[in-house]
Simulated scan of single mutants.
Amino acid sequence: MKLSAFVDVCLRTLMLLGSQRDQQVTTREIAEQIGVPYNHVAKAVLELRNRRALEVTRGRYGGSQITEHGLQLSVGGLMRDLDDRDDVVDCVSEAGVPCPLLAHCKLRSALRRAREAFYAELDSLLVADLTATSAKALLPFPLVH
């Protein structure tokens, strides 16, 4: 199962802010610390603020801080909500031609069940569980296709 780039950035943002709970961190600082382009982080911060996972203060001394609600979010639930892809595989070509096997395909439903099992495995894991240690190792940002 491959995470979307947006889900990845949201999780990295929450993990970073969870490890720096007593600090306000600017979007630019988040981007630098997690090694992700600023505009991707800005979009993630907005989404997480709308979900009440972050408290965002504007202005010269502003920044983002993770909320208690954000710390208590289920990782599986959050990933499920943020992943806007309908299917794990594309059943339509780039030219818009549907797969000839689509009518009797059992792979799509099996992959949907597998994706749900993946998320279900992460349902009991909270964002707070991911921030118990403050490892500063940077993972490479995935390429967006």
Results as ranks from 00 to 15, higher is better:
91 C>L: 14
74 S>H: 08
141 F>G: 00
16 L>W: 07
86 D>K: 14
40 H>G: 01
135 A>S: 14
130 L>A: 10
132 A>I: 09
97 V>Q: 15
40 H>Y: 09
27 T>L: 07
62 G>R: 08
123 D>R: 09
43 K>G: 00
74 S>P: 04
121 E>K: 11
84 D>Q: 14
21 R>W: 05
129 D>I: 03
58 R>C: 01
54 L>K: 12
38 Y>G: 04
62 G>Q: 06
37 P>K: 09
136 K>W: 03
122 L>R: 15
127 V>W: 05
60 R>E: 02
113 R>F: 07
82 L>P: 01
48 L>D: 02
29 E>A: 15
137 A>V: 04
71 L>Y: 11
33 Q>S: 05
52 R>Y: 08
119 Y>M: 09
11 L>R: 10
134 S>G: 13
127 V>E: 03
120 A>N: 09
102 L>K: 15
61 Y>L: 05
133 T>I: 09
48 L>F: 06
29 E>F: 03
100 P>M: 14
91 C>H: 14
121 E>N: 11
102 L>H: 10
58 R>T: 05
92 V>N: 14
12 R>L: 06
94 E>W: 05
79 M>P: 02
52 R>A: 09
94 E>N: 12
141 F>W: 09
47 E>H: 10
99 C>Q: 11
64 S>H: 11
89 V>W: 10
95 A>K: 13
23 Q>K: 15
112 R>T: 03
80 R>Q: 11
67 T>S: 12
57 T>N: 13
31 A>W: 00
121 E>Q: 12
130 L>G: 03
12 R>N: 01
67 T>P: 01
16 L>Q: 06
139 L>K: 15
47 E>K: 09
77 G>Q: 09
76 G>K: 10
100 P>Q: 15
118 F>H: 15
86 D>I: 05
121 E>M: 10
43 K>D: 00
139 L>P: 01
88 V>N: 13
109 S>K: 14
19 S>Y: 08
27 T>I: 07
106 K>H: 11
112 R>V: 02
110 A>K: 15
117 A>L: 06
83 D>H: 06
78 L>T: 01
29 E>V: 08
125 L>N: 08
65 Q>T: 07
39 N>L: 12
136 K>V: 04
125 L>V: 09
80 R>T: 02
30 I>T: 06
30 I>W: 06
142 P>D: 07
12 R>V: 00
25 V>H: 10
133 T>G: 11
138 L>K: 15
142 P>K: 15
21 R>N: 04
125 L>G: 05
26 T>R: 15
93 S>V: 03
128 A>R: 14
14 L>W: 05
135 A>H: 13
42 A>V: 00
66 I>F: 08
33 Q>A: 05
117 A>G: 08
103 A>F: 08
42 A>M: 04
38 Y>C: 04
138 L>V: 02
132 A>H: 13
59 G>R: 10
95 A>M: 12
108 R>V: 02
142 P>Y: 10
92 V>T: 11
38 Y>R: 15
45 V>D: 01
142 P>N: 14
96 G>I: 04
21 R>Q: 13
46 L>F: 07
27 T>N: 10
119 Y>E: 13
143 L>C: 04
134 S>A: 13
66 I>V: 08
47 E>S: 12
56 V>L: 13
13 T>N: 13
103 A>D: 11
18 G>H: 01
40 H>T: 00
27 T>Y: 04
22 D>V: 07
